[in-house]
């Protein structure tokens, strides 16, 4: 387990991280979300011991140093490989630095290239690859040595939906093999679709921390999504409704000041008859993110 306790980091006068504590458990995926500059990359750099910091970071009770480097797979935020090497040379070189033997890695390269649908041959130079293919090769470099701790900084950035799905499957595969995974993302839909746990950072502070359901339920089931022939005014006049949004024609989102008002609104809207949709739920992660980040700006 990766344990982060009371992690703080200052850059001059700037408090980049302020008393952050959370765990990343083997076989689970933790999403680290926050605005640009919230402290996500600084957290990763602290985990990897690139920076001096206050607090304690332990991997299975040990400090993160050279003795555990071989069990870590790290994907930095911006992609970067050695342009003059071939795909095979690059993958083998980085795998050897993770204490893997070249003869063990080479047979795995083709299956990984196929799995990630990389266009080209393993003898192709890195510099000849498209941006998307470079990104996939970098992901292979991060994962081919079967790391026990995966640290992925914005892994989905720049990927199209098809490739995003390929990556999600790879991350879920690593989870099934028992890896502890932490990744950052701006895309809340991705976080919601793969994460078990969530840490939201704002100005270096962890403002939300827990399982995905716990975090969402903290905000109460104060939204009702309905589809039907009502007008906005009709819905706005309902008791405990504070706001009505219309994302699409005939589709409405009612914001409540009391989640307990849901059954009464259901009765009022249906009157015992069929309606196309009625769902009462907590805010989406995206909405929570906007709310929390917005609160930080107020």
């Amino acid at each position: 387990m990766l344990s982060i306790q009371h992690l703080s980091k200052k850059f001059g006068d700037l408090q980049a991280l302020d008393d952050i504590s959370f765990d990343v458990v083997p076989g689970e995926i933790t999403g680290l979300i926050g605005q640009n500059g919230a402290g996500k990359s600084t957290t990763f750099h602290s985990i990897l011991n690139f920076l001096d910091y206050e607090g304690q970071i332990r991997w299975h009770g040990q400090p993160v140093d050279e003795t555990v480097f071989d069990t870590i797979g790290y994907l930095p935020e911006e992609r970067s490989l050695m342009p003059k090497l071939t795909i095979e040379q690059q993958i083998v070189y980085l795998a050897r630095l993770k204490d893997k033997k070249a003869k063990d890695i080479r047979p795995q390269i083709d299956p990984w290239l196929k799995r990630f649908e990389v266009k080209g041959q393993k003898s192709d130079k890195i510099k000849s690859l498209s941006k998307g293919n470079k990104q996939k090769v970098q992901l292979i470099c991060t994962m081919i040595h079967n790391p026990k701790l995966l640290i992925l900084d914005e892994p989905f950035s720049g990927l199209d939906p098809v490739n995003m799905d390929i990556l999600k499957q790879a991350i879920l595969g690593a989870k099934d093999q028992g890896a502890a995974i932490i990744f950052s993302s701006h895309d809340m839909a991705n976080v919601e679709s793969v994460c078990d746990n969530l840490v939201m950072l704002r100005n270096g502070q962890a403002i939300l921390n827990g399982t995905l359901d716990d975090v969402r339920n903290q905000f109460g089931k104060n939204q009702i999504h309905v589809t039907g022939p009502w007008s906005v005014q009709e819905l706005a006049d309902l008791p405990h409704v504070t706001k009505v949004l219309t994302p699409r024609p005939r589709q409405f989102v009612l914001h409540l000041d009391d989640p307990g008002a849901g059954p009464a609104i259901f009765e009022t809207l249906t009157q015992g008859k069929y309606i196309e949709a009625f769902v009462q739920q907590a805010p989406t992660l995206d909405e929570i993110f906007r709310m929390e980040v917005g609160a930080g700006h107020e």
Partner: peptide, 11 residues
Amino acid sequence: TKIMEIIFSST
């Protein structure tokens, strides 16, 4: 370059 971050997470 970020390749240095990858390398420094290995050795």
